[in-house]
Design a protein around this nucleic acid. Structure first.
Lengths: 135, 135
DNA sequence: TAACATTATGTAATAATATAACATTAATAT
DNA sequence: ATATTAATGTTATATTATTACATAATGTTA
């Protein structure tokens, strides 16, 4: 059930940065990450971006493209690391990863007019979260 | 059939920038737009970004978030300007707007675990276009 | 039309996001 | 062991986007 993510041993920098993102309740931006890990000896933007690139590549984190921010993957049944779906609250900016078998099947099987299938996708839904709807 | 887009009279800067994007076969980036319109008296990034913001708002163009680039809307039957779907070729970077009634209906009606619906979305599919598949 | 509000413009400065280039070190695989 | 690949460290720079402030054009209402 949880071996869907092939195990990668993270390097020191990758682990430091993953831990930080994983603990964060909201997506983190690169320079905010940098600021937070400077006490641990990571001094330069490139060190952060390299770790982020790798973590995205192996599916431990996802990038929220519309926000230039990174969030830990909480979708252990995700079969294709690069097929992602999120909901984003336009008021409080809360971001939630969507794990819907129906949705992922629908999108994985979607064909365009030419019959082409696209294995990877990134879907971002925008609207109001429950809390903000009630306000 | 084509009155789905409420008519907005574009201002001079908006028209110049829309025409440029509309003629471009591929998505354009802000500073590339700036370079191209400097001969028409648009000198500063902010002038470009302001026009882009407005054009996105009224649905004349869309932003390809994963590429920080802008493309004209070629989807005249699009009912909700902010519900967008694209395919992106990872080799040649060709971007195509997807207009599939099935897809847009499916996504417009999608509910998350809490039963929340999200009116707006941005979907980017990644893969190989027809040409690049044949290579 | 005058007064007011709203939207768009122009310009300069700067903030925020991301990569190039190069030298070095660590880990992995014959 | 040595060749290869992946990760690190550092400096500089490129790219993308916004803040702040002054002015002009447009729309609205009395």
């Amino acid at each position: 059930m949880s071996k869907m993510h092939k195990e990668h041993t993270l390097t020191k920098n990758q682990q430091i940065i993953f831990d930080l993102i994983d603990k964060s309740p909201e997506p983190m931006k690169a320079y905010s990450i940098l600021f937070n890990v400077q006490k641990k000896g990571i001094n330069a933007p490139l060190q952060v971006y390299r770790a982020l690139d790798k973590l995205v590549e192996i599916g431990k984190i996802h990038k929220i493209e519309s926000r230039n921010a990174f969030i830990a993957c909480h979708n252990s049944s995700c079969q294709v690391a690069k097929a992602t779906a999120f909901s984003i609250c336009e008021i409080c900016e809360k971001v939630t990863e969507i794990s819907s078998t129906g949705l992922s099947k629908y999108l994985a099987n979607f064909k365009d007019k030419d019959g082409m299938k696209y294995s990877k996708y990134n879907l971002e839904f925008f609207g109001l979260c429950k809390k903000c709807t009630l306000k």
